[in-house]
Design a protein around this nucleic acid. Structure first.
Lengths: 216, 216
DNA sequence: GTCTATAATCAGATAGAC
DNA sequence: GTCTATCTGATTATAGAC
């Protein structure tokens, strides 16, 4: 049960767990929870199924750990971006950029989370309630305060956040369709630059911080 | 193999297939392809698993039919909305409304499609290439023509379409998370009204057809 | 078209030697 | 910690009577 304290900086257990989790997030993202077999994950991580189950006693435990890691990473990037004291334009730009960076750097993580939510979040609703919703509500409250102070145009703050979430998230989740439209093997850095420009422009125009005009 | 021509307006086969497909789309949306068992679908549709397999010889055949129906419905709603001769504002409003209506009326269909794309569209990439991409490309071309004619502001038309797609689609796919934020059992008609107002406002502001200003 | 019966396979999980 | 061996249950799919 307990582990002997290791003198190595990175224990063997950590190394093996990292390898397992790296393959697990890939499989869960591609095939979903039920479509993923722990035998496949084990094989690609370079160990036997039985050995994997020494580190993660059940498939659910593995899945929960993957989701926990996804959420940890995401929360670390997104926490306390929205500060009512900062400039609204700066915050909105940073917000879009941070979410888009997550989609670019951790597309598999994004897809695992998306699949869980689409399926109704039956296994993870409680964690979302506890860890995600408060953050989203706080962000919405900041937007609403700016509106009350007349710093941004009076839009529906909740749905504005939904919109930002959706637009940025889709560059991970719907990448397969986007690459078909763009006729590429995979999304390029320049695609993310284009996305950031367009989304930022949309959001700023929506809240009255930027004017997009037609040429006369 | 072949069916005797029926004198009934709706054949027995049609009725049974409709019942099966109705449960199948629900199961595939909730549990994904691998997570769905045809035995469960059959039971909820009121027949035996073996009987279901008389109508759909394999699980894949059932899944393909579900996806085909999803796409048929979506294409019927979205085809030829973007007409370069029409008023850009009217077209964009209609586009947002049509996609949002689909998310409200057919959330399960939307989720099945989303899961397939997130997983890499391994089974359905060809159909998407043949039936979806041309439509999206045509829409993009219309947007670009309006830009060239100076009718809307010069934004990246491709990513504008991605944005509209993402924002509207998310009211089906991410409904589970939205209801947690909004603290509701399920999304209400008023939520879709709010969404339509915000998204339409964002899109029109982005292309310079509407000014959103802060109060002074 | 619907049923009973069953084949064939594969999954997650456990036991125990080393 | 890692291995061999095995259990148990579920799943897709088929065969054939009626």
């Amino acid at each position: 049960m307990t582990t002997v304290p290791s003198k190595h900086r990175v224990s063997h257990r950590d190394k093996v767990e990292t390898a397992i989790l790296g393959e697990a997030v890939r499989q869960f993202a591609e095939c979903g929870y039920e479509g993923t077999s722990i035998a496949t994950v084990a094989e690609r991580a370079g160990l036997s199924k039985q050995n994997l189950m020494y580190y993660f006693p059940t498939k659910q435990a593995l899945y929960q750990r993957v989701l926990d890691n996804v959420l940890d990473d995401w929360l670390a990037r997104m926490a306390s971006l929205a500060d009512p004291g900062k400039d609204p334009g700066d915050v909105l730009r940073a917000y879009v950029r941070a979410k888009l960076t997550f989609s670019r750097e951790q597309p598999l993580a994004s897809r695992v989370y998306a699949m869980e939510v689409i399926g109704g979040a039956k296994l993870y609703a409680d964690q979302i309630r506890r860890r995600v919703i408060p953050l989203l509500r706080a962000d919405i409250a900041v937007f609403e305060r700016w509106i009350a102070e007349g710093k941004i145009a009076p839009v529906n703050a909740t749905h504005l956040l939904f919109a930002v979430w959706a637009m940025t998230q889709s560059y991970a989740d719907f990448a397969a369709q986007m690459t078909l439209v763009l006729d590429r093997e995979q999304l390029q850095p320049s695609d993310f630059d284009d996305a950031e420009r367009l989304i930022t422009g949309m959001v700023l125009a929506a809240v009255g911080l930027q004017e997009n005009t037609c040429p006369p």
